[in-house]
Design a protein around this nucleic acid. Structure first.
Lengths: 147, 147
DNA sequence: GCCATCAGTTCACTAAATGAACCTGTCGGC
DNA sequence: GCCGACAGGTTCATTTAGTGAACTGATGGC
């Protein structure tokens, strides 16, 4: 990736954006996470230039977000998300919730999150780590701690 | 903003990224949300060109994420986040958590989320909407519902 | 053997970001 | 009432990044 000036910022958000913060990467990750693993399929689904897709995949591989696995018996490949990539699910879903809530009354495709066994609706929220209870947005405090 | 091809995708994530998905916007929002409201201060803190900052602020204003309020008695302005912008807190904090967890053992600045009255640690997690109980990541199912 | 598909690469072109200089208005000092 | 500093921009030349089309080369099905 490029050496943007914000990479030098000492901030986990800046770090995260230096890895996944360009125009296509989070959309690419959305598709990798939802089971699209092949070059052609990704290119067709996203509509970005093959050129750039190849570059992005290399970058993601070099950052440890995807692996490039040869499909057995062929010369073809599957790009599979690693745990580092899967850990972006909450980010992607937080974006999806925001998009749904604020895109106006466009009746488009929705993203629904449910609990696997009960089928009950789930959202990306704040939780106390201690006991897993939800905390309302107006009761949270965000601090930056410098080492 | 530009008319990138992914804007035409019918997906709330693509919509969200069409608004906040470029290189600087989420970093800009991080600072707006943490109380930096002035043009000069934002430019110095972020280090992006004044040029581009002016453009991004206009775009964010036109999308309803910030207001440009004249400061009383002066010809100066404060850029303040609207509720639409504040609704991006979970996205920003999910990115921060990911950045912290995966940037390797760099001992840099951390972002800590706590509950205001108890001071207990809080994280961005999945919660059942019904009763606000945390749901483990391996028990969630994500579906796209087409209208 | 032939055409289609997959996984790229190369290249010319366009769009966007960068960095520096410039402009205007205000305030404070003197 | 002149000077410098600062806030909040705009303009412009240069650099960098993204786009789209064409090309390569290996497989695979029939």
């Amino acid at each position: 990736m490029t050496t943007r000036s914000y990479r030098r910022q000492d901030c986990p958000i800046a770090y995260a954006l230096s890895v996944v913060g360009d125009q296509w990467t989070l959309l690419l990750i959305r598709d990798l996470l939802s089971g699209v693993h092949r070059f052609e399929a990704l290119q067709k689904k996203l509509g970005l230039s093959r050129n750039l897709l190849a570059r992005r995949l290399k970058q993601l591989a070099s950052q440890g977000l995807v692996t490039r696995d040869p499909l057995p018996g062929t010369k073809r490949f599957a790009y599979r998300p690693t745990p580092k990539c899967e850990a972006l699910w909450p980010t992607v879903l937080a974006l999806a919730e925001w998009g749904q809530a604020w895109r106006g009354n466009v009746e488009g495709t929705r993203v629904e999150i449910t609990e696997s066994d009960s089928g009950k609706a789930v959202g990306v929220r704040y939780c106390r780590l201690e006991d897993g209870r939800e905390v309302a947005p107006d009761r949270i405090v965000v601090e930056r701690i410098r080492p």
